[in-house]
């Protein structure tokens, strides 16, 4: 369960009375997908980056975020156990698929290396992409890339997922396919998932929109 309280985002240097975005309270239950909708520029991505723990020198952000009742607010990114799918760039370009997988597992997984490798390879084969094990990301097609990127993010054993317009770089036909596959994967894992998008077609689960007061109200 991912929850946040009293989150307020200000642009640094802007009017302190006019926050960019405010979320009094929002909870994402295990196995639930919550979609945050709104036009670009209202600070949706900023919210995700803050949740992830990235330092954002151009914003002033206050609030509290908890994962399974553990307060994450003061933890560094690496210890929050949140997975993130970005618009672009999910795989490290200097590593092969295999190395990307191993790198994703490297920090948290308690299993022996060999078992990690087996696990990753098995899952890759399950996607029908076993032959890409030694390929570099640049040689992957858009669909392959998106799937392997999610695979890697999940291999890092996150407790919740943040998705920042993860399908926007894909073309329409592929998008449909990757989207449904992604959500199936996340639902199977009972992963609390927060998705931000401006595209209605991408939305899933409980849909919240940014209202005229730049507020998100969790009904």
């Amino acid at each position: 369960m991912l929850s946040m309280r009293n989150v307020t985002i200000y642009s640094r240097g802007a009017d302190p009375e006019a926050p960019l975005l405010r979320i009094p309270a929002l909870t994402v239950q295990a196995g639930e997908v919550v979609t945050l909708m709104g036009p670009s520029g209202v600070g949706k991505s900023t919210l995700l980056r803050w949740l992830l723990g990235e330092p954002l020198p151009n914003f002033h952000i206050s609030g509290q975020v908890c994962l399974h009742d553990v307060d994450l607010t003061c933890l560094p990114i690496g210890q929050r156990q949140l997975g993130m799918m970005f618009q672009q760039g999910g795989l490290f370009p200097h590593l092969t698929v295999a190395e990307n997988c191993m790198f994703a597992q490297g920090a948290r997984s308690q299993q022996p290396r060999l078992q990690q490798q087996q696990q990753a390879l098995t899952q890759l084969r399950a996607l029908g992409l076993g032959d890409k094990w030694h390929a570099y990301p640049e040689s992957l097609s858009g669909g392959q890339y998106a799937r392997i990127a999610l695979l890697c993010t999940l291999l890092a054993e996150p407790q919740a997922m943040l998705l920042d317009e993860p399908f926007s770089a894909l073309d329409a036909a592929l998008r449909q396919e990757v989207r449904s596959w992604t959500f199936t994967q996340l639902e199977e894992k009972h992963m609390p998932t927060l998705l931000v998008t401006h595209d209605k077609a991408d939305a899933r689960g409980r849909i919240l929109t940014v209202n005229g007061h730049r507020e998100v109200v969790d009904a």
Partner: peptide
Amino acid sequence: LVKAQSLGYSA
């Protein structure tokens, strides 16, 4: 760097 940290690595 953020991406790597989200996988559990320190800065």
